[in-house]
Amino acid sequence: MKFSVEVMTVPVRDVDRALRFYVDQVGFALDVDYSPNESFRVVQLTPPGSSCSIQIGKGITDAPVGSLRGAYLVVTDLETAHRHLLGRGVQVSDIRHKMPIGAWDGGFAPGLDPARGDYASFADFVDPDGNSWVLQERGYRAA
């Protein structure tokens, strides 16, 4: 048996504003924008390189607007992703890493993990509706 997470619903108030944010600023690809009537619209977006998409829309969830918390976007180069998002107008937190290294107890220190270890460096951003995302570095390889 195989289980696969393929779509997450992100509750938003203004579908068009959210669509512009995720496509124009964050860089997700638009897969589907379907609205057969006034009470239903589904917009599916996929982060570059991901096999899991998000859906925003009207009539697709009863979750409170902005209630998604801490969804992870895993990137291979957090420093580059951070710079890219800032350049596109996304307000991204400063980068931080787990501390102490090797015996993490829930604390953080500023900047990238010195060894660029998997799952050790993070940054955050919030969409216009208050849904929060965590950027996490995994698979970094120095060029």
Score class of each variant (00 low, 15 high):
residue 60 I to W: 14
residue 93 S to R: 14
residue 95 I to Q: 08
residue 45 L to Y: 12
residue 135 L to F: 02
residue 27 G to Y: 12
residue 30 L to A: 12
residue 53 S to K: 11
residue 9 T to G: 02
residue 2 K to C: 07
residue 120 A to P: 00
residue 119 Y to S: 01
residue 50 S to C: 10
residue 132 S to N: 03
residue 86 L to H: 01
residue 37 N to A: 08
residue 33 D to M: 12
residue 142 A to S: 13
residue 108 F to P: 11
residue 126 V to F: 03
residue 5 V to K: 01
residue 72 Y to T: 02
residue 78 L to K: 08
residue 2 K to L: 06
residue 99 M to W: 01
residue 11 P to V: 08
residue 83 R to Q: 14
residue 104 W to L: 11
residue 16 D to A: 11
residue 119 Y to Q: 08
residue 32 V to N: 08
residue 33 D to N: 14
residue 127 D to S: 05
residue 80 T to W: 09
residue 118 D to C: 09
residue 56 I to K: 12
residue 19 L to Y: 12
residue 51 S to M: 06
residue 109 A to G: 07
residue 22 Y to C: 01
residue 133 W to T: 05
residue 58 K to M: 15
residue 59 G to H: 11
residue 64 P to W: 05
residue 41 R to H: 09
residue 77 D to P: 13
residue 87 G to C: 06
residue 61 T to R: 07
residue 140 Y to R: 01
residue 121 S to K: 05
residue 95 I to M: 10
residue 56 I to S: 10
residue 59 G to N: 15
residue 81 A to D: 02
residue 133 W to D: 02
residue 76 T to Q: 05
residue 125 F to W: 10
residue 111 G to V: 07
residue 66 G to F: 11
residue 125 F to C: 07
residue 112 L to N: 00
residue 42 V to I: 14
residue 122 F to M: 00
residue 107 G to R: 08
residue 5 V to C: 10
residue 39 S to N: 14
residue 137 E to F: 07
residue 98 K to C: 09
residue 115 A to I: 03
residue 110 P to A: 01
residue 128 P to E: 09
residue 121 S to P: 15
residue 37 N to R: 12
residue 40 F to K: 09
residue 36 P to T: 03
residue 94 D to H: 05
residue 44 Q to E: 13
residue 62 D to V: 15
residue 81 A to M: 07
residue 9 T to V: 02
residue 95 I to E: 09
residue 68 L to D: 14
residue 34 Y to E: 10
residue 45 L to D: 12
residue 103 A to M: 15
residue 13 R to N: 00
residue 63 A to G: 04
residue 4 S to T: 02
residue 79 E to K: 02
residue 106 G to S: 06
residue 25 Q to D: 07
residue 35 S to N: 13
residue 46 T to F: 10
residue 135 L to Y: 02
residue 5 V to Y: 03
residue 114 P to L: 01
residue 41 R to D: 12
residue 36 P to H: 13
residue 74 V to F: 00
residue 76 T to E: 12
residue 123 A to D: 08
residue 61 T to M: 07
residue 19 L to C: 07
residue 136 Q to H: 08
residue 23 V to C: 13
residue 50 S to L: 00
residue 125 F to K: 01
residue 141 R to G: 09
residue 52 C to F: 03
residue 61 T to L: 01
residue 64 P to C: 04
residue 96 R to A: 03
residue 95 I to T: 04
residue 117 G to R: 03
residue 121 S to G: 13
residue 51 S to K: 13
residue 131 N to C: 07
residue 89 G to R: 06
residue 52 C to V: 14
residue 100 P to K: 02
residue 122 F to K: 05
residue 33 D to V: 09
residue 46 T to M: 11
residue 46 T to D: 04
residue 100 P to N: 11
residue 81 A to C: 02
residue 111 G to D: 10
residue 116 R to M: 04
residue 73 L to T: 00
residue 85 L to W: 13
residue 126 V to K: 00
residue 126 V to L: 05
residue 84 H to M: 06
residue 91 Q to I: 01
residue 104 W to H: 06
residue 41 R to Y: 09
residue 114 P to Q: 00
residue 132 S to G: 01
residue 103 A to S: 15
residue 26 V to E: 02
residue 86 L to S: 00
residue 2 K to A: 06
